[in-house]
């Protein structure tokens, strides 16, 4: 049984997330953590927009917040997000990784260590290499890995650089990803 999913994306990520999150059912049994590179910009309005379109709850992650199933947590701009041993959220202002804070690698790695084989890692469209090492780490600890097919990705570098260094469990077109996550979430 899966407990959490992590999603990483940068350029083209707004569109990609719109194609996934609104499809999740109200009683979705996993917590979801999202790192979206948007520079110094706030993501309040995008969160608000997604909340209107979606059945799951979407919010910005807060420091020491307790993780709840059926909730989507966005990393705040300019903070890395990590998962604590006691299933709470940690934020950090550590240096940028791949010119990015939040960094996908930081979230993926920390989620891999905490959720192990109860984690789904999803890497979508993006213009840099962030996330490749992270999704490899998820695989190392037996989580399920999904990478967006570079053919459908708005920016191919991010998914392609993951596929270069690991063999994802699934390489899927964007419109197939939400279906796969829902299917996986129903497994015992």
């Amino acid at each position: 049984m899966f407990r959490a999913a992590v999603i990483g994306t940068s350029y083209g990520g707004l569109n990609a997330l719109k194609a996934i999150i609104p499809h999740l059912p109200k009683d979705f049994p996993l917590a979801i953590f999202v790192v979206l590179h948007i520079g110094d910009n706030k993501n309040d309005s995008f969160i608000q927009y997604l909340n209107k379109q979606s059945k799951v709850k979407i919010k910005e992650a807060e420091e020491k917040e307790e993780i709840k199933a059926g909730t989507v947590y966005f990393a705040p701009p300019n903070y890395h997000i990590l998962i604590e041993n006691n299933s709470t959220i940690a934020l950090s202002t550590d240096p940028k990784i791949h010119h990015s804070r939040p960094s996908i690698d930081v979230l993926f790695e920390s989620a891999a260590w905490h959720f192990k084989n109860q984690l789904i890692g999803i890497l979508l469209t993006g213009l840099n290499h962030d996330g490749a090492l992270g999704i490899k780490e998820i695989q190392k600890y037996c989580g399920i890995t999904i990478v967006e097919d570079p053919e459908t990705a708005i920016a191919t570098i991010m998914p392609a650089s993951a596929i270069e260094i690991m063999k994802p469990d699934y390489i899927l077109h964007l419109d197939q990803i939400s279906k796969k996550i829902i299917e996986l979430s129903k497994l015992d």
Partner: peptide, 11 residues
């Protein structure tokens, strides 16, 4: 200290 931070740095 927060375990998540320490773990990341030590790893």
């Amino acid at each position: 200290y927060s375990t998540a931070h320490i773990k990341r740095r030590l790893m």
